[in-house]
Design a protein around this nucleic acid. Structure first.
Length: 815
RNA sequence: GCCCGGGUGGCGAAAUCGGCAGACGCAACGGACUUAAAAUCCGUUAUCCGCAAGGGUGUGCGGGUUCAAUUCCCGCCCCGGGCACCA
């Protein structure tokens, strides 16, 4: 049969339509006897276009899903839409279109692109987080958290633009100014907002990471540890001189407390307003405003002496109380003791303001300095510290904390950097927070039977003034569920990270209208066997979703502790040396890719060009190469399909090709099971094709059959369309993903013999073809007899001979 | 400042357990086919010296361990990312 020309568009469209027409094709089996496998790619925001960055994520997941099907797993591989969020609202302001309409239009388009790419999703399980059927369960779970005290209200600052007279999201703040008014500085405004008590789970989130080790990338775990930021220290009460009032400070170095030369309060500390009155307080106010406009890192240290003094409970020393702009109210107790001799920041502050510097810790092998030139922050031996003098820092920390506890002026304490999760957004396009504000009854939860609280349609978007929801009277004006009096609905909506914190549970039971999901289904599918997404979600999404899982477990909704057993974070797709973005105009959409090269080429190229965890530069020439390669395989298969059925005796070419085939089966299987270096899997597959081209004329019929069938199966996870087509071309019935993965025969893969390298003083001088298992003695003898080896030995005396079986002989000579 | 990654040909990369550095692909060059071009097929391609045979050098830099180091250890430099006055 003559070879066929690879017409990617016709072939891919044909199979795309057939696959779409079979809704059960990519669906998991009910009551399956197969082992389950849940593979998940992070759901996209429906921005309007699927681009080559998305495709990398999905190509990895899809290759894995298809491989697992072929390996006999019952695979769950769903997809959905993270559909709430700011861009829809911005589009509404700009184009006078409803956010929902804009979003749904985008979803339709992107779903078409998804289908055209041929990813093996069970679309029957699709979810979109902006649908009331979905977000009602956000509201329902939020109410359960409220009942457990895990959702609460408190004052917090928001970004405020005076010109828009509206709240800005962090993303809408550009260089400290409003995104729509480039020279209007953003101000801080206090509002009452909702928080989720993630800090209650800080310790468990940290501890449970031990179980994730090995399954999650180290860098993600490191980032999460950093984010949670546990630190062990001591809280100590200083006394406000002349009163019984206590000032509690937090320190990790109580062993240095004899060197404390002042106490510094955060500007927002409650005591500040009490100690600094009248005109002076204006300076504190200025400090707070200054901090709000500055990014962290470029704040210069400023202080203000209050005139008051505090007494150190360990040595009754009297020290001045200062206000410092670098002391954070949100961490520890909002007050610190400054030990300039042993802390760099305190040193800088005290030097500036002429506050004394007293060293009290010396290096283990050194002495206390006569004059402190720089802070010594390491552990050492405590000096000039009363009864503690001579102890190591570690011992002193422990014993001094114990004393504080015993005497009642403090205790050891653990502080976390992670803060409670503020979820209130003064926005329209998000889940309405299900609460009602009643003058009589206060903050009243919406009863379960009134859920969902549905977003109203036809809202005006001006981008100014109150939140759009606050301007819809039908939405705002309600009766109090408790007393029936006129009341007002909460108009804030939830952070969209709420939506993505549990969406992967809903895939298991996406049509359930009486509960978020059926626990039995979760027990079957969870944890997710493999989660795949961008590293930019290493902290927020991936911590929030871990937190949400633990809350749902404690609510009795599920039994698993963690959502995800294994996580993979793929690298970014770079175009022309820069991250793709609309601003740079270097975004390549899936449509462009498909039209030029086809879905298979795009996927194959992105998997081949770099290992998946690394950043990838998308180049046209590279894509062309992948196209050429698929074409090369396709032509080989089509022109040899007839030969499959011709009889023939085994040939030498058969043996070589089968050997390579089985080596490649092993290689690709191992890559899937361990490293995921699909770039090397595909390289090995290319070597196999090169081998086939070299021996094409001399292959026997039975081996042609064997090889054609297996190369199609091996390539299928990476380029599914062309493989489905080739499977049909060789007269087999699909679908390919339900065929068994080729088995590896170690006997056939074996090389004829070993090639042993001969070295003299570590340099390769010759090589020997020998039988496997040739003994050390024989190898050594052969090496010593080798002409090249002899000439490089140059008659010098042999020091020793290293022999590694089947690998090398290294003759070490003197000189 | 702290915590992660990474640094190998003209380019993307490979070397999975300390054992041939550069597999595979791109680009380039040469050949075959063609009236010609494209496509395709075959070949060459780290670098220096050499006509060649062959030899030297080479994985960011400097040391070390080892018969042997891209790989392990110590100290630096550069690039990317995260956190950042967290007491």
């Amino acid at each position: 049969m003559p070879e066929k020309i690879y017409e990617h568009n016709a072939i891919e469209l044909k199979w795309s339509e057939r696959w779409a027409a079979d809704p059960k094709l990519f669906a998991p089996e009910e009551n399956s006897s197969k082992p389950k496998y849940y593979v998940l790619e992070m759901l996209p925001y429906p921005s309007g276009t699927l681009h080559i960055g998305h495709i990398r994520n999905y190509a990895i997941g899809d290759a894995l899903a298809r491989y697992k099907w072929m390996r006999g797993f019952n695979v769950l591989h769903p997809m959905g839409w993270d559909a709430f969020g700011l861009p829809a609202e911005n589009a509404a302001i700009k184009n006078n279109r409803q956010p929902g309409e804009w979003t749904n239009y985008n979803i339709e388009h992107m779903k078409r692109q998804h289908r055209r790419m041929g990813f093996s999703y069970d679309w029957d399980r699709e979810i979109s987080t902006c649908q009331p059927e979905y977000y009602r369960w956000n509201q329902w779970m939020f109410l359960r958290m409220y009942e457990k005290g895990l959702a609460y209200r408190k004052n917090a600052r928001v970004n405020w633009c005076t010109l828009c007279a509206t709240v800005l999201a962090n993303e809408q703040v550009v260089n400290g100014c409003c995104w729509r008014h480039e020279d209007t500085p953003v101000e801080q405004k206090e509002l009452v907002q909702w928080f989720l008590k993630i800090t209650a789970y800080a310790q468990e989130l940290l501890d449970a990471m031990q179980k994730l080790e090995g399954g999650w990338p180290d860098r993600v775990l490191a980032m999460q540890r950093n984010w949670i930021g546990r630190s062990e220290g001591t809280e100590v009460d200083f006394t406000l001189e002349g009163t019984a009032e206590k000032i509690r400070v937090f320190t990790t170095r109580v062993d240095t407390i004899y060197g404390a030369t002042c106490v510094i309060l955060a500007p927002e500390h409650p005591l500040t307003a009490q100690l600094v009155k009248g005109e002076e307080y204006g300076k504190v106010k200025a400090m707070i405003d200054y901090l709000a406009t500055k990014g962290p890192g470029d704040v210069s240290k400023e202080g203000l002496f209050t005139g008051a003094y505090a007494v150190n409970p360990y040595n009754q020393q009297r020290v001045p109380i200062w206000i410092g702009n670098f002391v954070l109210m949100g961490y520890g107790t909002g007050a610190i003791m400054a030990v300039p001799a042993h802390d760099e920041r305190d040193f800088e502050f005290c030097t500036t303001y002429g506050i004394p510097i007293i060293p009290v810790v010396r290096p283990v092998d050194g002495a206390l300095p006569a004059k402190v030139e720089a802070a010594f922050g390491d552990y050492g031996i405590v000096e000039n510290s009363g009864a503690w003098t001579g102890l190591s820092s570690a011992d002193a920390r422990k014993q001094m904390s114990d004393l504080a506890k015993k005497e009642g002026f403090g205790e050891s304490s653990i502080t976390f950097r992670i803060k409670d999760w503020g979820i209130s957004r003064q926005r329209y396009w998000g889940t309405p927070i299900p609460f009602i504000h009643c003058k009589q009854c206060g903050v009243v939860p919406v009863p379960d039977d009134q859920l969902p609280v549905v977003l109203p349609d036809n809202v005006q978007f001006t981008g100014k003034g109150k939140s759009p929801l606050a301007m819809v009277p039908e939405f705002v004006n309600v009766k109090c569920p408790t007393c029936g009096a006129a009341a007002e609905r909460e108009t804030d909506t939830m952070d969209t990270f709420v939506d993505s914190s549990w969406y992967f549970y809903r895939y298991c039971d996406n049509k359930n209208s009486t509960a978020p999901f059926d626990k039995k289904k979760i027990d079957y599918w969870f944890p997710i066997d493999q989660y795949i997404g961008g590293v930019e979600h290493a902290i927020l999404h991936l911590i929030y979703s871990r937190f949400w899982t633990k809350v749902m477990r404690d609510l009795g909704l599920i039994s698993n502790d963690e959502p995800t057993a294994r996580l993979f974070t793929q690298g970014m797709v770079i175009k022309d040396g820069a991250k793709m973005s609309k601003n740079k105009g270097n975004v390549i959409s899936a449509d462009t890719l498909v039209e030029q090269y086809g879905a298979d080429t795009g996927r194959l190229f992105e998997l081949f060009a770099a290992p998946p965890e690394r950043d990838l530069d998308f180049t046209d020439a590279g894509a062309k190469g992948a196209y050429r390669f698929i074409d090369r395989v396709y032509r080989f298969v089509t022109r040899n399909a007839d030969r499959m059925h011709s009889p023939g005796e085994p040939t030498e070419a058969d043996r070589k090709v089968l050997r390579k085939l089985h080596q490649v089966i092993e290689k690709i299987s191992v890559d899937f099971e361990s490293r995921w270096h699909f770039n090397t899997s595909i390289a090995a597959f290319m070597e196999l094709i090169n081998e086939l081209y070299a021996h094409e004329a001399n292959l026997s019929g039975p081996v042609v059959k064997d090889v054609l069938e297996r190369i199609i199966l091996l390539l299928a996870p990476f380029a599914p369309y062309i493989c489905e087509e080739m499977w049909a071309e060789i007269g087999r019935e699909g679908p390919v993903l339900k065929q068994a993965w080729p088995t590896f025969d170690p006997e056939l893969a074996k090389e004829d013999g070993a090639e042993v390298i001969l070295q003299v003083n570590g340099k390769v001088r010759s090589r020997l073809a020998v039988a496997f298992g040739t003994t050390k003695e024989e190898l050594e003898k052969m090496a010593m007899a080798n002409e090249k080896v002899q000439s490089f030995m140059a008659g010098k005396p042999v020091v020793k001979v290293i022999v590694v079986l089947d690998k090398l002989v290294n003759v070490v000579v003197k000189g």
